[in-house]
Amino acid sequence: MSDADTPGTDSTRLTEYVELHGCSCKVGQDDLDALLSEVGLTDQQDELLLGVGEDAAAQRLRDDLALVSTVDFFTPIVDDPYDFGRVAACNAASDAFATGAIDDVSCRVVLGVPRELRDRAPAILAGIVDAFAAMEGTVAGGHTILNPWPFAGGAVTATADPDHLLDTRTAAPGDQLYLTKPLGTQPAMGALRVKDGEFAEMLEETAPRSMDRIGEEATTWMTTPNRAAATAAREHATAATDVTGFGLLGQARVLAENADVGVEITSLPVIAGTVELSHLFGYGLEEGESAETSGGLLLSVPAERSADLEAALSDAGVFHRRVGRVTDGSGARLTDPEIEAVSR
């Protein structure tokens, strides 16, 4: 057997060890709702400021201090172990940032690797450590196991003033909706995984850009923390969530249900080339259904504060697009959305 055929060698691809990649490994919304309902975790938890149904939990410690906590981990969406660690770290921290909690950030790493891939663990962990350092956070410990499917992420804590917390319950009709990263990570990375196999010729004919370039841009977006977006937005936004495995439309449904409002999505900024790839593989990007990994924040802001929010995001160097609005009614839907191809 050659080195190329031996599990655990440098040629072994992390994504080959799993059937579902990144945030697409999340349990579906309907199944998750049924699970929570079955065990009685659907009611408001009076002892918490934020609880089940929000991106993170929040507990009041003092009148001026809340502790925000969350846990998130997933399977590889990229093959480079260092990048996998960075993506996992940004994704895990994003749930805390979606609540506006950006201070005192720390992570307890959750890491699992197959026995034959133990040599990849240091690079994955290094990616997590470096990513949290870039977010002005720290890795404070963790737990590592042997597991047939590799996974990485962590339990993240952060602090915020309770009066500055954001959640999904306070969006109001008339609010404008903004997104802080383009969509398309699932088709970008899905196509990249098979670009050298039997689909190579089909991908070359389908993709309007280099597959490597599309993949590089998707990885750059996934390893861009949402901390700067949260810092810029929390003085202006009334509600927020981050866009991950449920896709933009799925997260909009959460916002609509929790705030008892309607949501209209009118624009879809996407990584250039990913719509064509989504058509090929049936990911539903144009329908807002494609799973996102380490996606942007979906922010709800009163119309009169929209200009202030845009200015704050621009000053912070944060990508942003207005993607819809909050309405009377219920549920979330796409309304003939304009597709904007975004390239770096």
Rank of each mutant, 00 (worst) to 15 (best):
G250M: 07
L277Q: 09
D104M: 01
I214L: 02
T159P: 02
V263D: 08
T159Q: 03
T75C: 07
D46V: 10
S37C: 02
E287G: 15
R115M: 11
V323S: 01
A239E: 07
A98W: 01
D212H: 09
D130Q: 05
V52E: 15
D336C: 06
M211H: 12
F74G: 04
S314N: 10
D308L: 08
L285D: 07
V194L: 12
R169A: 14
V87W: 09
T327H: 14
T75I: 06
L297D: 10
R322P: 08
V323Q: 00
A230R: 02
D3I: 04
I77V: 14
G284P: 09
E16Y: 01
D104F: 00
A57L: 08
A126L: 08
T138Y: 00
F74W: 05
Q176L: 15
K26Y: 15
G329S: 13
G154A: 07
T219V: 11
V301D: 03
G329V: 13
V68I: 06
R62E: 04
A312F: 02
L297V: 03
E205R: 14
T224L: 13
A171Q: 10
A312M: 03
E304L: 06
G250K: 04
A57R: 02
T157K: 00
D10W: 02
G262I: 11
A96N: 03
G324F: 00
R333P: 05
D103L: 00
